[in-house]
Design a binder for these strands. Structure first.
Length: 576
RNA sequence: GGUUCCGUAGCUCAGCUGGAUAGAGCAACAGCCUUCUAAGCUGUGGGUCACGCGUUCGAAUCGCGUCGGAAUCACCA
């Protein structure tokens, strides 16, 4: 139970006692008191006026008096117009801290029994990953972690688009122009080499538009299983997979299940037949099959081409059906850019028409594009921010900053390397994840990602600071413990207040599929600690009870920071 | 043109299930390192929450409209 709920419950009792009426607890408005006013939580009494039939100030005064008289946890109040500011007793906060400190699974919400598949990344195998993919990957990974923290069972899945005309283009260019070049022979990472082929093809096609016919021939040969074409396809896909694998590893991302489009692209045709039998789909005279969504405000949607081949939508229908039945999913989250909003709307509607009630359990986590100062990234204009380059740049930045500070002097080289990666990646991940997923965000390559202020390294640094104090305390034989006699300062109460809000933040973030809520929470917590740090000498405290309480407090703070940042997939160092 | 999303400080973003005087960071300026890590802390300046109307005791938040931006409406994926 959160403190807000606790107070709301007490307020219900107060209204009952004072006015003899049952006021629904859900409608009680309790919030954290603004910092210019005295108090911890504020009850807004305006909604109660119809019940009390008295002026706001009078009602607030009456409820405040009742609460302080009848609830030992509530130690004081002041009423400003319709706002009843309540102070909770020191004992309440101390007990709160004791509860959190002793609870290793704090922040892990109880199991919901829901099984959820989260599909993300889903790259094409004709070019290397770029910044847009990074946002997709980080969001998918983080939302998976978030849902787990909120009690769901999560299966992380990806669908690799490894077939189609795009990969044939790269294959064609490689055969014609690359003289047998391999990642080994050139030293170029596989996905980049294939990407180079794709670029070379684009140039070639511009000069000789007729080559597209050869590419289409290649695609047909692929579909027929031509051994030569298949061999080339497997080889080049292999290069790309190896390259992607490295990038995923550098990002710290894994999947529980990988689907390949060459396995799934034929799925869905039976469903279309079923739809025709049910009469919810129509076949045009030319043989193409459509679903009429005009009644739902969309258009007619193609499901089978006139030659009987399937389109993207067709296989999405098939894979969704297969996944829901295979894994007995309760829900399926697709992490896909908002440019496909229309597609997912249509997908859900078609599934619904086919009689699948679980269509309502599909959630399209529609995220905004990452834009550059000059607008969208365009591969043709060479403005694409390459994922590998960016990760490397962040690492270099972290290394330079660390070396300049000299704080890592004297620790082993491999440990330093580990920290540079941790910090560089932390900066990148936080930069992406702190923004509300659904919003378009901006990345300026000229200004490198900051390490100061509201950033990943700031939170990592705060954690390292706490660890440093705890190390020194441990060396001095000081023990962390919250004794019943411990009295908390106002700043410490603020920290406990923020700490205790963490489980609710996880719940809110999961409900909104927004890691940004957790990111901003972690920042608030870290910022609050830094202020506390500057005004309180923790280790110098002579009183053993106070010292023990403070050590327990900052230990819990560090643990909660780790939990919150773990949801974002960011590791926190013990020194930096 | 239809549909959807977005518009908050010079810049990047919080706040949006209606609550008090709209918050951070960056950038600028002024301070704080013989005291637990200065990747930090403190302070100053910076706002017509795009605009208008409406609902309400109360609107950045909800509704309608206008302006501006983006996406989408393929026998592409």
């Amino acid at each position: 139970m959160t403190t807000e709920q606790f107070i709301a419950g007490k307020a219900v009792e107060a209204v009952k006692a004072l006015y003899g009426a049952d006021f629904p607890q859900e409608q009680m408005q309790v919030g954290v008191t603004r910092k210019d006013f005295e108090g911890d939580y504020t009850l807004v009494v305006f909604p109660l006026l119809k019940t009390s039939r008295q002026a706001p100030a009078v009602t607030a005064q009456a409820i405040g008096e009742w609460l302080t008289a009848n609830c030992p946890e509530i130690s004081g109040f002041n009423a400003v117009q319709g706002f009843l500011n309540l102070s909770l007793s020191n004992i309440y906060w101390r007990e709160n801290l004791q509860e959190i400190t002793g609870n290793a699974s704090f922040g892990q919400l109880p199991a919901t029994g829901r099984r959820v598949m989260v599909e993300f990344s889903s790259p094409n195998t004709n070019k290397p990953l770029h910044l847009g993919h990074i946002r997709n990957n980080l969001l998918g990974d983080s939302v998976s972690r978030l849902l787990k923290a909120a009690g769901d069972e999560v299966i992380k899945a990806t669908l690799v688009n490894d077939r189609g005309v795009h990969i044939c283009k790269s294959m064609y260019a490689w055969e014609k122009l690359f003289d047998g070049a391999t990642p080994e022979s050139t030293g170029i990472k596989g996905d980049h080499l294939v990407g180079d082929c794709y670029v070379a093809y684009a140039k070639l096609e511009k000069e000789h538009p007729e080559v597209i016919d050869d590419v289409h021939k290649m695609l047909v040969q692929w579909e027929e299983g031509d051994p030569q074409v298949r061999k080339l396809w497997e080889m080049m896909n292999g290069w790309v997979f190896d390259g992607f694998e490295q990038t995923y590893k550098a990002l710290g991302i894994t999947f529980d299940r990988t689907y390949y489009e060459h396995d799934t692209y034929l799925l869905g045709k039976e469903l279309v037949q079923k739809g025709l039998d049910m009469g919810v789909l129509v076949r045009d005279p030319d043989g193409s099959v459509w679903c009429d969504l005009t009644a739902d405000g969309l258009d007619r949607k193609l499901l089978l081409r006139s030659d009987g081949t399937s389109v993207y939508m067709t296989q999405d229908l098939g894979t969704a059906e297969r996944r829901f039945s295979e894994y007995e999913l309760d829900s399926h989250v697709y992490v896909v850019g908002n440019e496909q909003d229309y597609h997912f709307k249509a997908l859900k509607l078609v599934l619904k028409k086919l009689g699948f009630d679980w269509a309502d359990q599909i959630y399209h986590l529609s995220y905004g594009m990452v834009e550059l100062p000059e607008g969208k990234m365009k591969s043709r204009e060479g403005t694409v921010v390459d994922a590998d380059d960016l990760i490397e740049k962040m690492y270099q930045e972290a290394k330079a900053t660390s070396e300049e500070s000299g704080k890592l002097d004297g620790i082993p080289e491999d440990e330093k390397e580990r920290l540079y990666h941790m910090i560089g990646l932390g900066a990148l991940k936080y930069f992406i994840l702190k923004v509300d997923p659904k919003k378009t965000m901006l990345f300026d390559p000229k200004e490198s990602i900051d390490f100061n202020g509201n950033t990943g390294p700031f939170i990592q640094y705060t954690h390292a600071r706490i660890c440093s104090i705890l190390r020194k305390a441990s060396e001095a034989g000081k023990k962390a413990a919250v004794a019943d006699a411990a009295v908390l300062s106002p700043k410490e109460i603020r920290l406990v207040k923020i700490l205790s809000a963490y489980p609710q933040k996880v719940a809110d973030a999961a409900a909104a599929y927004s890691p940004a809520i957790v990111a901003n929470y972690a920042y608030d917590l870290a910022k609050e600690f830094n202020q506390y740090y500057h005004e309180t000498q923790i280790l110098k405290e002579p009183d053993a009870t106070l010292l023990g309480m403070r050590l327990a407090l900052i230990d819990t703070l560090a643990a909660t920071l780790r939990k919150a940042m773990n949801v974002l997939g960011i590791d926190l160092p013990e020194r930096m």
